[in-house]
């Protein structure tokens, strides 16, 4: 039971990354390999504000989210928008460029030392029916729930949200109907940045340290979740996140560390290969990439 709950909470954070990946993929058919690295980079900003300037966590967190949103927007404006007509492979390579760039900067400035970010709320938690849930886990659950519901409502009930969906379904038709393609692209990338920072902030108390590449596991979990969900489905990404989190927690709990250390990462690889073999369109994916 404890394992299940831990898995669900980690999974809900993976879902945030998966939502970011799915949102960008849905709107622009681009796989964003920088999805977790943007937030990792801006977490150093939080560290700097909270540790060096002794500001409250929430200020640092908001600053990180703002910075990550800005990175998403700037990258979209400088790179993605100039490549509207380029092959999607090329644009995907550009996101690998962003991933490398953020990671390279982290390595150049912060390599070798482990940085500690103060916890969001004071440690401790409550025990409900034999299951211990810490305050930061409660926080994660609450924030993820709010974000997911808010995003769903936004996409379903606002004109702009509907336009985002339409452009995902049929870019040409949507553009003929006057959907502002540039604004949609900017929105999805800004959103991707914000989701990235949020996910990193929420999982940081579990990981415990900040170092270059510390959140690779988060990226892998989110990517696996997005694939399980079908890459272009937002509800799929969410459910995929939860499923991946639970499987990962179970594998970690049952496989001995000595045989395969960090077996959860290997489990992700197995899940991905399995999904591609058996159900490449994912749980809720609309169309598969399968050829006739």
């Amino acid at each position: 039971m404890q394992v299940l709950v831990v898995g669900l909470i980690a999974g809900s954070i993976y879902a945030l990354i998966a939502l970011g990946i799915a949102l960008v993929y849905k709107a622009t058919r681009v796989l964003n390999f920088a999805q977790a690295e943007i937030g990792t980079g801006t977490l150093y900003f939080t560290w700097w504000l909270c540790t060096r300037h002794h500001l409250p966590w929430i200020v640092g967190a908001l600053a990180s989210i703002a910075a990550a949103t800005a990175i998403g927007l700037v990258f979209e404006a400088l790179v993605i928008r100039k490549m509207m007509t380029a092959p999607r492979v090329t644009v995907t390579v550009a996101t690998i460029g962003l991933f490398s760039f953020v990671l390279a900067l982290e390595l150049a400035f912060f390599a070798g030392t482990i940085y500690l970010v103060p916890p969001p709320i004071h440690p401790g938690g409550v025990r409900i029916g034999g299951v211990f849930v810490s305050w930061s886990q409660w926080l994660a659950l609450g924030v993820v729930g709010l974000v997911a519901l808010g995003l769903a409502a936004f996409l379903r009930y606002t004109d702009f949200g509907l336009a985002v969906q339409a452009s995902a379904d049929d870019p040409v038709a949507a553009q003929l109907m006057g959907t502002p393609r540039a604004r949609i692209s900017a929105f999805t990338w800004g959103m991707a940045g914000a989701l990235s920072a949020l996910a990193v902030l929420l999982i940081e108390p579990t990981v415990g340290v900040l170092s270059p590449g510390a959140f690779n596991g988060l990226f892998i979990g989110g990517l696996t979740a997005a694939l399980v969900g079908g890459l272009n489905s937002l509800p799929g990404a969410f459910i995929g996140g939860l499923a991946v989190g639970v499987v990962e927690a179970e594998v970690k709990a049952h496989l001995s560390f000595n045989v395969i250390p960090s077996s959860n990462v290997t489990a992700m690889l197995v899940i991905v290969l399995g999904v591609l073999l058996l159900r490449p369109q994912g749980l809720l994916g609309a169309t598969a990439g399968r050829r006739a």
Binding site: F33, T92, N216, G217, P261, S262, V265, T266, M268, L269
Partner: peptide, 14 residues
């Protein structure tokens, strides 16, 4: 791309 990025990290950490 998806499979290999996960493979690379799985090799390294696990």
């Amino acid at each position: 791309g998806i499979v290999t990025v996960i493979f690379g990290l799985a090799m390294q950490s696990s």
